[in-house]
Simulated scan of single mutants.
Amino acid sequence: MICFPNAKINLGLNIVSKRDDGYHNLETVFYPIAIKDALEIIVKEDQSEDTFIEAGIKVDAAPESNLVMKALKLMRSKYEFPSLEVHLLKKIPFGAGLGGGSADASFMLKLINKTFDLGASDKELANIAVQLGADCPFFIYNRPMFATGIGEVFEDVELCLKDYTFILIKPDIHVSTKDAFAQIKPLQPSMSLKEIIKKPMTEWRDLMINDFEKSVVAKYPLINEIKETMYKHGALYASMTGSGSSVFGIFNEDVKALQTLYPDCNIWVGKGM
């Protein structure tokens, strides 16, 4: 059985308060995009221990530390199903603000649930997913969502961007999420993202911000250069996603020039979901 975990972008990201548990309350709009990994599970006939085989982008972590295998372990603690050989083809860049690892973990939960007809609801899977990471529950639902709390409280939003072209540029920069949060001064936004996304996209540039950008760009000016270049080439909206370092632009059409301006970057072009 095979599935294709997809990435996400953040349309705006406001850090609104510091929590007593050390985490931060935020608000953001998660939007799925079609850059994908491939995840396959095969039942092991000899029923030996679960195994993990990885290809594509190399993730510098032991198999047992991979979120896919952590997801498998969590499911096995709650349900009975056969031993598995797990294959992951990694195409979503990590350290990029795209949620690739979280997507893989949540799709693993869904894949096991479907393959073995375990009957877990989306809510039940989301409750398992949040134990793996704050943004993991989003990928259980995998549709446009307004998120609050630490990113695990969801509200559906009416937003369809499937007719637009997304250009995503990932420079060779790894941003530490922990370090990015350390530079943030929480602030309640003057306008909720739920209201901003209802406005014409041409107004988003002046209204929708990512609170991580200021400190991350100060350290890595290339990120802001890429963003401004996207606007010069006709982006309706452009932003860093998550805590970086990927920058996305939303266009009415494919802009070929952008794909040649940054030859040392990972570049993806596709439609919204």
Rank of each mutant, 00 (worst) to 15 (best):
N113V: 02
H24F: 14
A147Y: 02
F81V: 05
K198I: 10
L161V: 10
C136Q: 05
E27A: 06
F4Q: 13
F251K: 03
V157G: 10
G22I: 08
Q183S: 15
W268H: 02
V269E: 05
S77Q: 14
R143H: 13
V269H: 05
G242P: 11
S83M: 11
R205P: 08
F181S: 06
W268K: 02
P82T: 10
I33L: 05
F251A: 04
V175M: 01
W268Q: 03
Y237I: 03
Y141E: 05
L98M: 10
G56H: 09
I9Y: 06
L258R: 07
H233V: 04
A96E: 00
V59D: 04
S239V: 09
K178L: 12
A126H: 01
S17H: 09
F4A: 10
E49S: 13
K110T: 03
K271D: 09
L98I: 00
L74T: 13
E124C: 08
A120V: 12
S245K: 07
I128Y: 07
I9M: 10
E155K: 13
L88K: 08
M201Q: 12
F116M: 07
N142E: 12
E155W: 07
L74H: 14
G97M: 00
I197H: 10
E225G: 07
E124P: 03
A235K: 03
S239Q: 13
L11N: 04
W268G: 02
N66C: 08
P5T: 01
Q131F: 07
D20K: 12
A147T: 04
K44F: 06
E213K: 03
A134E: 08
S102R: 05
K90V: 03
M108T: 12
I267A: 02
K90Q: 05
V247K: 04
P200D: 15
V16M: 08
A96Y: 00
G133P: 06
M108V: 02
V269M: 07
N25I: 07
I173V: 15
I150S: 06
K219D: 12
G22K: 05
I42P: 01
T148Q: 11
F212D: 01
P93I: 05
S176D: 02
F81K: 06
E40N: 13
A129I: 00
I128F: 11
T241F: 10
L258N: 06
Q47G: 09
D20M: 11
I42V: 13
L161Q: 08
R205V: 14
